[in-house]
């Protein structure tokens, strides 16, 4: 029961169904990954571990697309490198291509020092420019926040 609470918090805050968060964490960190919640600022960070080994952290947030929120997850490893992102809920009629693996994989291995910018490190998708810019900005901020919290011990 208590295990469900962090997911309900995340659901409340950014509209990510618990099942999707769980599936995303398992996809990125492996089937044996377990999560526990950590409060950081106003966010709930998921600490991801396998048995006693820390694997990394995941943060779920939402950014505004053309007129709807896009709910996404950003996962980092213990060295603060971005492991992967997931688009958990997409609600617009156009621009859903940001969920494609071919686009998402550009973020892998990036760190907070990388200036993630559309047209430079991140290639755009014609016809999905608003979503591409929104998600890229959201990921950049999430990566910076996770890195800061991890470095100053707010999450460990």
């Amino acid at each position: 029961m208590t295990l469900l609470f962090p997911f309900l918090l995340i659901w409340q805050a950014v509209g990510a169904p618990p099942a999707k968060v769980t599936a995303s964490v398992r996809r990125i960190f492996g089937a044996e990954a377990t999560t526990s919640p950590l409060a950081a600022g106003t966010d709930t960070v998921l600490r991801v571990a396998r048995a006693d080994t820390l694997l990394g952290f995941a943060l779920v947030r939402a950014v505004k697309g053309k007129d709807q929120p896009i709910t996404f997850l950003v996962a980092i490893d213990t060295a603060d490198r971005l492991k992967d992102i997931d688009i958990l809920v997409y609600r617009e009629p156009y621009g859903g291509e940001v969920a494609y693996e071919a686009w998402r994989r550009q973020f892998r291995g990036k760190s907070a020092q990388d200036t993630l910018e559309v047209g430079r490190q991140i290639r755009s998708i014609s016809g999905a420019t608003i979503s591409v810019n929104a998600v890229t900005l959201g990921v950049r901020r999430a990566l910076q926040d996770l890195t800061t919290w991890h470095k100053n011990g707010a999450i460990k």
Binding site: T2, F5, P6, L8, L9, W11, Q12, A13, V14, G15, S36, P37, A39, T44, A62, P69, T71, V89, R91
Partner: peptide
């Protein structure tokens, strides 16, 4: 986890209608 659980319960009780983004 315990303190978060308490705050989560308070949070859930105080907002009868959830304010999901969704």
């Amino acid at each position: 986890l315990r303190s978060l659980t308490v705050s989560a319960v308070v949070c859930l009780l105080s907002t009868i209608s959830p304010r999901h983004v969704t």
